[in-house]
Design a protein around this nucleic acid. Structure first.
Lengths: 103, 103
DNA sequence: ATTGACACCTAGCAACACTAGGTATAAGCT
DNA sequence: AGCTTATACCTAGTGTTGCTAGGTGTCAAT
């Protein structure tokens, strides 16, 4: 998978993964891999900054899990859920446009 | 359409448009708009540098059209045609992966 | 004559994924 | 006990890329 392909879509996918319930960062990385059938094996240096970005934007909230391993657990905010809806629609439009041009 | 959505896919679409035959730069912009049903209205400052990039990479060749308006006409090279094939496949994989994650 | 469409260009900016490092805990193996 | 691997987090810096905002010039139509 070409590096630049992701651009602008990673955030959407992270929001989608977190729509199923809160997860800590490392688990988000795993879920992206699992859900994509292995084709989205993203390095931590890609995902962690994205999570920070999304929290900064108000789409996610996070808290440290108590006990055991140091884990930052992320949840979708109401704003984040709304954003996901818009982004999904945008993805369909974009995808259709590319498909039309490639056809 | 979000600005970053395109990233990494514009080059593929330009190659696809030129697979139907040589076009000058401005016409490439128009074709992208037409083929996408109007949703890909890209500014010149986006497309011209991309054309230069693709030529630099050996995927396109260009020449100035003689007579009338100053136009640089771009053609897909053999290398470019091969590249397009690979990129199309990559797009399908990427698209499927995103769809799977969003589902 | 002047507006608008055509047709090309580039410097600089901002966003973003990745590289390449770092720290630290827990589990499994020998 | 020591060692390795997987888990779990982080960030500074880099390279690519699309866009903004300007510029130049031609041609057709009002």
């Amino acid at each position: 998978m070409r590096a630049e392909a992701l651009k602008g879509h990673l955030d959407t996918m992270i929001l989608a993964v977190l729509a199923s319930g809160p997860l800590h960062g490392y688990a988000v990385i795993e879920q992206l891999k699992v859900r994509s059938g292995g084709s989205l094996a993203l390095p931590e240096g890609t995902v962690y900054p994205a999570l920070h970005r999304l929290e900064e934007a108000g789409y996610l909230s996070s808290s440290w899990s108590d006990g055991g391993r140091r884990r930052r657990v992320y949840s979708l905010t109401r704003r984040g859920r709304g954003e996901l809806g818009g982004r999904r629609t945008e993805w369909r439009a974009f995808s259709a446009a590319v498909e039309a041009v490639l056809a």
